[in-house]
């Protein structure tokens, strides 16, 4: 049963993006369209699951004083795998995400989960945590991207959803729009939490 609760906690209660505020850079940078957000989410989820599994397997062998560099190397290896796989099979997406694929290495969500969860729990729970946190990050990315894509280009996943008379609000897909969207979303989350309390 705990397996499932480890998965679901990442979605809302401990959502890496909105609640823990980790990994803001890729969220803001690649959320210009939903397809980019989903691609990034999938890449992050894959790296997170793999690194969580490996790190929870080696947690007893790794001396604690040099654990961070070792975790980073494990993560960097999986990121290179994702980077090259994407370049080979999804060249367009790879181009759109650009530098943010290799930058998954320094995404604080992944190192944060390695340090806070995988290094203390067994493989099964670490796998569940990886799935949950990965999906949570993807969910957050997709929400931000949905708002930005609809406002900024009038489309969702490339399909036109706004009437033709809608004048796209260009600022939403530019850099400032990313900050505003995330800022207001977080304020909304806080407001909802306040009301429930």
């Amino acid at each position: 049963m705990r397996f499932f609760s480890e998965i679901t906690k990442g979605l809302i209660k401990e959502n890496p993006m909105f609640v823990l505020v980790l990994g803001t850079c890729p969220t803001l940078a690649v959320s210009t369209s939903v397809i980019n957000a989903l691609g990034m989410g999938a890449a992050v989820t894959f790296v997170l699951i793999c690194s969580n599994i490996i790190i929870s397997l080696i947690k007893n062998i790794v001396p604690s004083s040099i654990r961070i560099p070792i975790y980073i190397v494990v993560i960097a290896a999986f990121v290179s795998v994702v980077d090259m796989t994407m370049a080979a099979f999804l060249p367009d997406l790879h181009k759109a995400l650009g530098i943010f694929i290799p930058l998954i290495v320094v995404n604080c969500i992944i190192l944060g989960r390695a340090e806070a969860f995988a290094s203390k729990n067994n493989v099964l729970y670490s796998l569940a945590d990886g799935i949950g946190m990965g999906l949570g990050a993807t969910l957050a990315l997709t929400i931000v991207a949905t708002i930005r894509e609809i406002l900024g280009s009038g489309t969702w996943l490339g399909i036109r959803v706004m009437p033709n008379s809608y004048e796209p609000m260009l600022v939403a897909i530019l850099a400032p729009g990313a900050f505003f969207t995330l800022g207001f979303l977080m304020a909304l989350m806080n407001r909802l939490k306040e009301k429930r309390a």
Partner: peptide, 22 residues
């Protein structure tokens, strides 16, 4: 307002600065 304090207002400020830098 309490729900704007901390992260939300910091992000909105950053957005305004980004707008200026544009």
């Amino acid at each position: 307002p309490k729900y704007m304090r901390g992260m939300p207002i910091a992000l909105i400020l950053a957005g305004t600065m980004a707008l200026a830098f544009y």
